[in-house]
């Protein structure tokens, strides 16, 4: 995974990506016990993304030039399927802007904070999100005040209350 992270960082160094953070399952498993996932999701900012029809074109072109294949919207970078996701709403955008710099496999990288991951899981609301959110409540070390501040601001408090009701009966 170190080589994959090096290559992702090279995308930032070359200006193809402005910034990124690890999101999705891999980010979640940084904080909780791992279960199966198949891709490395990255939330990214791309230069000029708001003006371009297909903002990921430059990434796909870079992948082709570097011999990385494309499979089902995933770029296989050093053996790991990577999915590049634009910051698609205000919550995700803020999550990216508040990401933490960490070191994994002796390579620096960026990861979404647990409070934002939890809020995004509530917002997305798929069965997988609900299951992992429940695990976050038990297993993850997160700032409860920060979490509630975020979900109140993004109108997710009622969803949280409903979810808590479902879990606790």
């Amino acid at each position: 995974m170190r080589n994959t992270l090096k290559k992702i960082n090279s995308l930032v160094e070359s200006g193809i990506v402005t910034d990124y953070a690890i999101a999705g399952g891999i980010a979640q498993f940084y904080y909780i016990e791992p279960s199966v996932t198949y891709d490395l999701d990255l939330i990214v900012h791309i230069p000029g993304e708001e003006n371009v029809l297909n903002p990921l074109t430059n990434i796909y072109e870079w992948a082709k030039q570097n011999g990385y294949s494309l499979e089902s919207e995933h770029v296989i970078i050093e053996g790991i399927p990577v999915q590049f996701l634009l910051a698609y709403n205000d919550l995700v955008n803020e999550a990216l802007e508040n990401s933490d710099e960490i070191t994994l496999f002796e390579e620096f990288t960026y990861i979404l904070k647990p409070e934002y991951l939890m809020a995004i899981m509530l917002q997305t609301g798929r069965p997988t999100d609900k299951e992992r959110f429940a695990r976050f409540l038990i297993e993850a070390n997160y700032d409860k005040d920060k979490f509630f501040e975020i979900i109140k601001r993004f109108g997710l408090l009622e969803i949280y209350k409903k979810f808590n009701g479902e879990v606790n009966g």
């Binding site: 995974m1 498993f29 904080y31 909780i32 016990e33 791992p34 199966v36 996932t37 496999f105 038990i138």
Partner: peptide
Amino acid sequence: KSRAKMPFEEKVKII
């Protein structure tokens, strides 16, 4: 809870 705290490198192997 204890499994959540294991090093990330170990988690990737498990994944």
